[in-house]
Amino acid sequence: MILVKIYVTLKDSVVDVQGEAIKDATHTMGYPGVSEVRMGKYFELKFDDSTESLEKDVDEICDGLLANPNIESYRYEIAEEA
């Protein structure tokens, strides 16, 4: 099995309202050193070892389903599952 870990985050040009709320909450909790929080999504996809076009497939899944390319960017890591 091949494990793909996908991280989706808002682009830097997009204001992260949830991140700002979390940052404010950390300040209220007594952590004034937190200067920025960016929210995101995390996904794990498992593929058969026989997948030939893995990176192409992952890009298509991310662009078509997991991320909104207008406001979000993504990155992923490919690992063989133990």
Rank of each mutant, 00 (worst) to 15 (best):
Met1Pro: 05
Met1Arg: 03
Met1His: 07
Val4Ala: 15
Val4Asn: 13
Lys5Ile: 05
Lys5His: 10
Tyr7His: 11
Tyr7Lys: 08
Tyr7Pro: 00
Tyr7Ala: 09
Val8Pro: 03
Val8His: 09
Thr9Glu: 12
Thr9Ala: 10
Thr9His: 09
Leu10Glu: 09
Leu10Asn: 05
Leu10Ala: 12
Leu10Cys: 11
Leu10Thr: 08
Lys11Gly: 11
Asp12Lys: 06
Asp12Ala: 13
Ser13Trp: 00
Ser13Asp: 13
Ser13Cys: 10
Val14Asp: 04
Val15Arg: 05
Val15Ile: 15
Val15Gly: 07
Asp16Pro: 00
Val17Asp: 06
Val17Arg: 04
Gln18Lys: 06
Glu20Ile: 09
Ala21Ile: 11
Ala21Met: 13
Ala21Asn: 11
Lys23Leu: 15
Lys23Pro: 07
Lys23Trp: 03
His27Pro: 00
Thr28Asp: 14
Met29Pro: 00
Met29Gln: 02
Tyr31Asp: 10
Tyr31Arg: 02
Pro32Asn: 09
Gly33Glu: 09
Gly33Gln: 07
Glu36Ala: 15
Glu36Asn: 11
Val37Ala: 03
Val37Tyr: 00
Arg38Asn: 03
Arg38Ala: 11
Arg38Cys: 11
Arg38Gln: 06
Lys41Arg: 06
Tyr42Ala: 04
Phe43Ile: 03
Phe43His: 02
Leu45Asp: 02
Phe47Val: 03
Asp48Thr: 04
Asp49Ala: 07
Thr51Leu: 12
Glu52Val: 12
Leu54Asp: 10
Leu54Asn: 07
Glu55Ile: 14
Glu55Leu: 14
Asp57Phe: 00
Asp57Tyr: 00
Val58Leu: 10
Val58Thr: 12
Asp59Glu: 12
Glu60Met: 11
Ile61Met: 13
Ile61Asn: 13
Cys62Arg: 01
Leu66Ala: 11
Asn68Leu: 01
Asn68Arg: 01
Asn68Gln: 06
Pro69Cys: 03
Pro69Gln: 01
Asn70Cys: 12
Ile71Lys: 05
Ile71Val: 15
Ile71Met: 15
Glu72Gln: 09
Ser73Trp: 04
Arg75Phe: 02
Tyr76Ala: 07
Tyr76Glu: 06
Tyr76Cys: 04
Tyr76Gly: 10
Tyr76Asn: 03
Ala79Pro: 06
Glu81Ile: 06
Ala82Asp: 12
Ala82Lys: 08
Ala82Leu: 14
